[in-house]
């Protein structure tokens, strides 16, 4: 019971309290600053090692899938190859083993095995996924922006103004009016700086207070679901 409930709650309490107290003291207050620095260092180390947890789970899950010949088990083989190959390039490169010298491109500009993988496989795949956003934004806008009522109309008009104001085409649309070239851009900036900022701040303040309230519940052990614990 102590290890399962009291100890995690005590650790949470201390890990939450120490940075708060440290925030209110100067650097000379070593009594609070030293534990706080130590805590921050531990966080960096734990964050680094935590990735091993995930890797072990991925390997276990996919080996199990291959053993059971579950649906799509062939893909699990490719996944494991994709995990092991670049991973070993990186590890061997970091320790300068044989031809796997370094993880960055070599001094003459030629790629190391790991950097080759990063530049010609990883980066293009990443950019491709992100660029899908343009397609999805278009389809979501087509579906969502309808003049259903007054609010929806205002939303639509604001969206169109900002979209036009963010491109040179919008500027040239009004260029025939004296001073019109800058009008749309100026109006867009006004929309972003005023109505947009006002709404953002409202949500930000509410969310910040919500986050602070949740933090307090966590530190005091009132909110425990993230530990897999229910209230007594």
């Amino acid at each position: 019971m102590f290890l399962r409930v009291q100890l995690p709650l005590l650790l949470t309490f201390l890990a939450g309290l120490i940075p708060i107290v440290a925030f209110f003291f100067t650097e000379k207050a070593r009594l609070v600053k030293v534990p706080n620095d130590r805590l921050e260092k531990w966080m960096i180390i734990i964050a680094g090692f935590a990735i091993m947890l995930g890797v072990v789970n991925v390997v276990q899950g996919n080996i199990r899938k291959i053993e059971r010949k579950g649906p799509g088990w062939h893909y699990a083989i490719f996944l494991l190859i994709g995990l092991v190959l670049p991973g070993s390039f990186g590890l061997l490169g970091a320790f300068n083993v044989g031809p796997f010298h370094g993880i960055s491109p070599h001094a003459d500009g030629s790629p190391s095995p790991f950097s080759f993988f990063v530049s010609y496989v990883f980066q293009p795949l990443q950019a491709t996924m992100f660029s899908l956003l343009a397609f999805y934004v278009a389809s979501a806008a087509f579906r969502a922006f309808r003049v259903r009522n007054l609010e929806a109309t205002i939303l639509l008009l604001a969206a169109v103004v900002v979209m036009l104001g963010r491109i040179p085409l919008g500027e040239s649309l009004f260029a025939w009016i004296p001073g019109g070239k800058l009008a749309l851009g100026t109006f867009t900036e006004w929309l972003m700086n005023n109505p947009n900022t006002a709404a953002q701040r409202g949500i930000m303040i509410g969310a910040a207070l919500g986050a602070a309230s949740l933090s307090l519940r966590v530190i005091l052990g009132i909110e425990r679901s993230y530990l897999g614990l229910e209230k007594d």
């Binding site: 949500i203 509410g206 969310a207 919500g210 519940r217 909110e223 209230k231």
Partner: peptide, 19 residues
């Protein structure tokens, strides 16, 4: 769920008086 509604979710769903 917008912003603070998300943070309130645990309390709202549990109906725990303290939360």
């Amino acid at each position: 769920l917008i912003g603070e509604e998300l943070y309130a979710a645990g309390a709202y769903l549990s109906r725990d008086p303290a939360m």
